[in-house]
Every structure is written in structure tokens, then in C-alpha cells.
Design a protein around this nucleic acid. Structure first.
Lengths: 232, 232
DNA sequence: TGTTTTCTGGAACTTTTGTTGGATTAAGCA
DNA sequence: TGCTTAATCCAACAAAAGTTCCAGAAAACA
């Protein structure tokens, strides 16, 4: 099965020769479900491209609470920061399911960037983009309440599924949602109940889906529950 | 007065010709104390280098609460993300004091990066570094209590002053500290009182200084007040 | 110098978030 | 099918953060 290298921002626009070089520089690693890929603080593990499976990027505090920074699917990349500057890994990575990844070491990445100008300028753009995402997350944590963050998660996840099903986050357990929002399971449960009561979400069997998209947007933007409008 | 361009990570290692080019591409802007430099969401204002004065980078939420992302002194740079990708400015910038800045537009920066390879690879490194800072701040917001963040601020600010006086943050008002920590004035006041009572900080007249550096480190790392050890 | 403005101290209260624990339900598996 | 494990629901409570309010102190300034 061929990989669509152009779907990876770092490798877009490279000539076939450059692409080959990159592929030759990388090694494929296979991880079993649950396996640790690397740990925070350890020496730079290199640049990763998810080829198969699901990878969780997270941090953990002294009391053992988790913060999931992202859940990555195939063709996502991670650990670019350490790969670029050679410093310690800034977070932990584990394989959620069985997974495969392409890994390029710090040294080789530097060589590739020196040789392939396109890779270098793609990297600048990609890092800038990453930066925007972190600024956004930072503001979510400083300004938004948990119900508001939860609303945002539902909106974000459902658009990822092209609006057809709005139930996406329910494939996640409350525990996992809690880790994404940076809080605890109980609090997520309560917030979920709140959104259900307010009529923003609805339940059908086990699945939760979006009942009032506008209401969720309002909550995500203003931090306040929208007035109950029975039939929107 | 000459500017030490090598003190700016982006311009380090450039040959004199390249440096000249960069200086020629930039325009100097002067701002009065309190003046808006640019606003969040507006079209990319370009790449900024502080040449003189103090600049505040911040975001604001719907209710008008501020979050100061950084206070920048001469030779600091800002808005690199928008300058690189040409997207909207990700935050607001104002001159706290009278200030001067060198500004390089998005277009010109792209040209410079295309022409000067060193600038391009410096930018990759600088963006990676920025990224690490944001990851760190994000974890502060998700995991640390306000007293803990306050302790961290004291530790960080005092080292900036080479350990001689540890009173640094007191040049900031409680209001300003609150904006940096992402909370409100009263809460900062309360936390400050807490640290004073715990013997971690001391007051001499108007000035607050560090009384127990280890204790502050403990608080910053573990989120818990250290046991009261009278004479450390 | 007196007056105004800004900053600080601190109490009392509300809201939100985090914690504990037990009951219920669903899902996975032998 | 019954048993076991995982996920959820919900109430009651504890702690942290945010809000309101007012009184003093210090600084700025006319």
C-alpha cells in the first residue's frame, strides 16, 4: 500500500529524489497496543510519522493526572520540536492500538533539511502552524470553563467527521475526554449531563450526538449556557 | 548606538551582507506608551524586533479578562508565527512604555528566508524553541494551582536578575501579575498572602523578596505548600 | 501641600472544579 | 448463559478560584 506523502505537510512539494532520500533516512517501527513510544524528558527520539494505528501524546503531573495533547491518526507527525532542536522529548507518546511509525533521527533530519530546501521551508510553516495550535489550547485552558471546552470538543470532533455523525466524542470514554480537557472523569460526566439537560446534546442509546450546534457554538465562545430555546 | 544583532537568535551567524539586507528590509516604528501595535485577528502585521522600551503581548476573552503571554524587552522578537505563515496575528501587542521596533513584512521576510539560508534555519530553531515555551505554559495552566504558578513566576523573574535581588515581580503590580498568571487581582493578593504566611516570601517595606527559594521550588513542582521549616 | 488616582489588604460570599464512594448499567468473555 | 470487568450515573462533600465590596496606604500630580 502506497503512502500519500503529499498529505504530510513536511514532505509536500518535494521532488521524487528528495522523497526517496527521506524515506531512506527513516526507519519503520512497529508498536503493540499500549506500548510506550518514548517518554518526556528523555533524549530526543527523533521525528515521527504515524503510518498506522492511533498514537496518544500526553503529559502527566506529579499526582498522576494525564493531559492528552493529541490523538494522532496515520499521516500525522509528532515530536518535531525535539527532532529539530535535538533537545529532550517534550511529552510522552504511546501506541493506543497496534501502530506503525516512520522515525527519522535528529541528525538525519538536520542533514535532510540542509540538503532539501523544500523540507526546510515546509518545516518552518509546519512549526508555525503547531505554534498557533498551542496558543489556542493555552487560551482554552486559561479562559474556558469545562462545559465550554467540552462543547468545543464536540464541535471540533464532529466537523472532523464531515458533519454526518455528531457523536464522535462518544467513541471516547469519559476518562479519555477528561484527559483531553485536562480534568477528571467525574467532572466530564457532570458537564455532559449539563449539556444534555440544556438540550445541546442528545442521547440515543449509548451514543451522544449534537442536538443544537448553534447552542454549542454559543457556549464554546461565551462560556455561558445559551437560553433554552425549545425548537431551534 | 549599535544593535548587537547576534543577540537575536534569528540573525545569528549571518554574514554582514545578509545582515545589511535584513536591516534594509525592515522599517523602524515608534510607539508612544500605551499605543496599540497590532490586534489579534487582524491581517498579518509582520515580524517584530523590539529595539527599545517594553512591549506587552496578550489575549483577551469575551468578558474582558486579560492574559499576558509575555512582556518583551529590547532584542526580543514577536509575531513570528504570523510573519512566517502570513495568517492573522494570533494576539494583541501594545507598547507599555515608549517603544521602538523594527518591522519586517510577511512578504519581505519570505524573500529574506529564501535568499538567506541561515535565516531560514535559524527560524526553524527559534520556532521550535517557542513551541517548547508554549507547551510548558500549557501544562502550567492545566496542572498548577495559582500559588504554584506564582512561585514559579518569582523563581523565574528573580533568576533573570541574577539572583541578587529576588524582589523582581514586585515591580509588577498585582494586577499585572494576575494577567500573567491568567487570573484576577484578588486571587493574586490572596496567594501572595499565603506565600508570605508560609515564610516563602518576605516583605520589606513595599518590596517582596524570596525568603525560601527551596520552598518555592517545592511549591512550584508539587503544587503543595512545603512543611514549615523555620530556619532553612 | 492637599487632592486625586492607583494600588493593596482583607473579609464574606458564590461558583466552579475536584474528590469520594456507592449503585447501576453495559460490554467482553469463558 | 453467567461471570467479570469496564464504564457510567449521581449525590454529597471539600477545596480552589472567582466575585463583590469597602477601607487604607502609597504614589502621582497639580
Amino acid at each position: 500500500m502506497g503512502i500519500d506523502w503529499n498529505a504530510i505537510p513536511y514532505f509536500r512539494g518535494l521532488d521524487p529524489c528528495g522523497l526517496k532520500r527521506i524515506q531512506a533516512a527513516g526507519r519503520r517501527h512497529i508498536y503493540q497496543a499500549g506500548a510506550v513510544i518514548f517518554n518526556e524528558g528523555e533524549a530526543c527520539a527523533g521525528f515521527y510519522v504515524v503510518l498506522d494505528g492511533l498514537v496518544r501524546i500526553y503529559r502527566m503531573n506529579a499526582e498522576g493526572r494525564l493531559h492528552t495533547l493529541s490523538l494522532l491518526r496515520p499521516l500525522s507527525t509528532f515530536n518535531e520540536v525535539a527532532a529539530v532542536d535535538g533537545g529532550p522529548n517534550p511529552f510522552n507518546a504511546v501506541a493506543v492500538t497496534n501502530a506503525e511509525a516512520l522515525v527519522i533521527s535528529h541528525d538525519r533530519l538536520l542533514n535532510l533539511m540542509a540538503a532539501e530546501r523544500v523540507l526546510l521551508s515546509n518545516t518552518v510553516q509546519a512549526l508555525a502552524h503547531l505554534n498557533r495550535e498551542y496558543i489556542e489550547r493555552l487560551e482554552d485552558m486559561t479562559f474556558r470553563s469545562i462545559p465550554s471546552r467540552l462543547a468545543k470538543l464536540f464541535l471540533y470532533e464532529s466537523t472532523a467527521y464531515a458533519d454526518q455523525i455528531a457523536e464522535a466524542p462518544t467513541q471516547l470514554t469519559q476518562e479519555e475526554i477528561a484527559a483531553i480537557l485536562g480534568t477528571t472523569r467525574e467532572v466530564v460526566g457532570r458537564a455532559l449531563r449539563g449539556l444534555l439537560n440544556a438540550g445541546l446534546l442528545k442521547k440515543r442509546g449509548r451514543h451522544v450526538y449534537i442536538a443544537d450546534r448553534r447552542g454549542l457554538e454559543w457556549l464554546a465562545e461565551t462560556n455561558t449556557m445559551p437560553e433554552r430555546v425549545p425548537n431551534r
